[in-house]
Every structure is written in structure tokens, then in C-alpha cells.
């Protein structure tokens, strides 16, 4: 395995008058798929937000070995799409960080559009590129949010229940694409999942959080 992208040491997070987790130590190795599991409300989303830098932990520390050029991108559980924008424009939102405001004021570079169309086609949205995001089904919207994150070319992709609204076939295919893409580009994927079968099939490591027991998390190498 290559260098660890993130190293968490004795992390603790206290929210809404309770500890979600404490003394949490693990690392996210490069070119790996880390799954986070646990019942609803256990703190998976909060942990994701903490890893993305959106939240600060109450104890411990989180060390990042990502360079300033290497990005973290997140697939949000509530998708966070622009409903009044087309599917293509939403997907292209992922490439904004690579271009100046002036360059994207009147549109996107052709190669970015081609790349976005390619991703949309892989996720079965090629026929819906001009439709408003609000008119897509929940599953289609979820696939669109995934496309947007992939287009941002992150070194570390954090995916908060990215396949929750997808049928088994799409869920399996999506996790395969996410893993293949991240591994090919030398990046890693941290993904919260509910389905143990998906964890066993795709993940290299799994972090299991337990309800009401903030210190009883476990870390397991499932690829071994």
C-alpha cells in the first residue's frame, strides 16, 4: 500500500449532548476502499464531515497527507444538486475548481463537456443531459451527484451512502466504477454503507461504529 492519505488519532466527536465516537484511530491508505458501517444515527455522516474538514473534532487529531493540489470531494447524502440547472450543468459543477470564474462565466471548455457527457453516459443519464435535475428520479439524481464528484477528480472521495437509492444492479455497478476510478488515479474512497454484502465485495477495510458505545468501534481488513 502507498502512503496514508489521512491518519486519525484518538478522534472524538461530541454532538447534540452525546459522544458519537471517542478514541477513534484509523488511517485511510492510498489506493484503497474504506467502508464505514453502523446503524442509522451512529455518526457516519458526522465522521464523513469531519474527514472532509467541514466539522472539527472535540478531541484527538486528524492528519492529512494530501498536497494542496490534491482534493477531497464528497457525495452528499442529500445530494445537494441545483434543481433548476440541467443534468449536464450539475455534472460540470465538479470541474469548476479547475477553471477561473472568467473562463466559466459563459460556459465550459469542450473537453470538460465531453468528459462530463462520458461520465453521464456511464451512469445511464446520456438521454437526460438537458433535463432539469428536479425532474429526475431519486436514483437518477443520486447517480448525477456521483458524476459531479467524479468529475472533480478528487484524490480522496468521501461518499455518504452513495447507493442508498439505487437498485442492486446499479448499486453494485456504481461501487465498482467508484472503486476502479479512484484506484486507477491513485486515490482512495471512503464510503458509508449499510449492506454487508457490498462491504465484503468491494471494501478493503471496514470501520464499524456501534450505537450507544462511542468507544467500541472496530477496524477490519476485509481484503486480506
Amino acid at each position: 500500500m502507498s502512503t496514508n492519505l489521512l491518519v486519525a488519532k484518538d478522534l472524538g466527536l461530541h454532538l447534540s449532548n452525546r459522544w458519537l465516537f471517542r478514541k477513534l484511530s484509523f488511517s485511510v491508505p492510498g489506493s484503497s476502499f474504506v467502508a464505514i458501517t453502523g446503524p442509522s444515527g451512529v455518526g457516519k455522516t458526522s465522521l464523513m464531515r469531519l474527514l472532509s474538514g467541514d466539522l472539527k473534532g472535540n478531541e484527538g487529531n486528524l492528519e492529512s497527507n494530501l498536497s494542496t493540489d490534491e482534493k477531497i470531494s464528497m457525495i452528499f447524502q442529500d445530494l445537494q444538486l441545483a434543481n433548476g440547472a440541467s443534468t449536464l450543468a450539475n455534472a460540470l459543477g465538479g470541474c469548476l475548481g479547475r477553471h477561473s470564474s472568467v473562463r466559466t462565466l459563459l460556459g465550459f471548455p469542450k473537453q470538460e463537456k465531453d468528459s462530463a457527457l462520458n461520465w453521464l453516459s456511464q451512469f445511464g443519464l446520456a438521454q437526460k443531459t438537458r433535463q432539469w435535475a428536479s425532474t429526475l428520479s431519486r436514483g437518477e439524481r443520486q447517480r448525477l451527484a456521483i458524476c459531479r464528484s467524479l468529475i472533480s477528480r478528487p484524490k480522496l472521495l468521501l461518499a455518504d451512502e452513495p447507493v442508498a437509492s439505487l437498485d442492486n444492479q446499479w448499486a453494485d455497478e456504481t461501487l465498482s466504477i467508484l472503486k476502479t476510478n479512484q484506484l486507477q488515479t491513485g486515490g482512495s474512497l471512503v464510503c458509508s454503507l449499510h449492506d454487508e454484502e457490498q462491504v465484503q465485495k468491494h471494501a478493503d477495510f471496514v470501520l464499524r461504529l456501534h450505537a450507544d458505545e462511542p468507544e467500541s468501534w472496530s477496524w477490519e481488513n476485509v481484503a486480506a
Partner: peptide
């Protein structure tokens, strides 16, 4: 939320407004 999502992916404030907030408004 979409404006914040784009900012988190590296978009500048004008880009996040144009492609995140404006389409919703």
C-alpha cells in the same frame, strides 16, 4: 446546499453563485 457543495469541490464564490445558487433562484 448546492452552492456549498460546489464551494467544497473547489468552485470560487462567483462560480458557486452562478452554478449553485442562481439555478435554484
Amino acid at each position: 446546499s448546492s452552492q456549498k457543495a460546489l464551494t467544497s469541490m473547489g468552485a470560487g464564490p462567483i462560480q458557486a453563485f452562478q452554478y449553485g445558487l442562481w439555478p435554484n433562484a
